[in-house]
């Protein structure tokens, strides 16, 4: 393999280097690449929304399938724009009420099921050291987040066990985060070395 002859790979490589140049010092190349990213993601988002929402969910059903029920959600959606006009701004509450109401209705029972599953899974079906640690961890952490009792005496001791568990979890999350950030960097280096420079396969 050799240096890439693909124009777009060059663009991608140059932009990658422009972003990484920030590590040395803030500079115009970095700023350019950053603004470009923000602009492109908004533009891309709008085009996708346009095709997949306006066209497939509103235009096509109305024009081809003559499904006039679509007008109801369309009207509700348009009411959101009333926020830009002060004297009718209150109308935007109607669609928001729909979204909040339906959203809560959907999520509340599901969240319960979710909680149930977690409690269910914490039940010790067999007694081994792992499950005992889990049960102790869950209970002591819950006690740490218990606000109606002063953390003194027994409760205090248990909540200290709880915070220890929380810290161990943070340690694990911290390690994983480092791993993730390194992985992202590896992905870019791989791109630069292989797709762009062709040094490795």
């Amino acid at each position: 393999m050799a240096l890439s002859s693909n124009f777009w790979i060059w663009i991608a490589a140059i932009l990658t280097l422009a972003i990484y140049s920030f590590l040395y010092k803030d500079n115009p190349f970095y700023k350019f690449a950053e603004y470009l990213l923000v602009g492109i993601s908004i533009g891309y988002g709008i085009s996708v929304y346009w095709h997949n929402t306006i066209i497939t969910k509103v235009f096509n059903p109305l024009v081809y399938d003559k499904n006039f029920l679509v007008l109801i959600p369309l009207l509700l959606g348009l009411l959101m724009f009333s926020r830009f006009f002060k004297n009718v701004a209150y109308l935007s509450r109607i669609p928001i009420a729909f979204v909040v109401g339906a959203g809560t209705g959907l999520s509340v029972p599901s969240s319960f099921e979710f909680l149930f599953k977690q409690v269910y899974a914490t039940m010790p079906t067999k007694l081994d050291i792992g499950i005992i640690i889990i049960v102790i961890g869950v209970i002591s952490t819950l006690i740490y987040f218990f606000f109606s009792l002063e953390h003194k005496g027994f409760v205090g001791r248990v909540s200290r066990v709880g915070i220890t568990f929380i810290m161990v979890a943070f340690g694990a999350a911290f390690g994983y985060t480092i791993m993730a950030r390194v992985s992202l960097f590896i992905g870019r280096i791989q791109f630069l070395l292989s797709d762009w420079l062709g040094i490795i396969k």
Binding site: F114, K117, Q118, Y120, A121, T122, I134, A169, A172, A173, Y176, T177, M179, A180, R181, S183
Partner: peptide
């Protein structure tokens, strides 16, 4: 990998059958 630690509890509760982390 950032989120992997968070999702381990769903493996243990069998809500997820497995996980590729990072």
């Amino acid at each position: 990998a950032v989120s992997a630690a968070e999702y381990y509890s769903y493996l243990q509760s069998k809500q997820a059958i497995g996980m590729l982390g990072g």
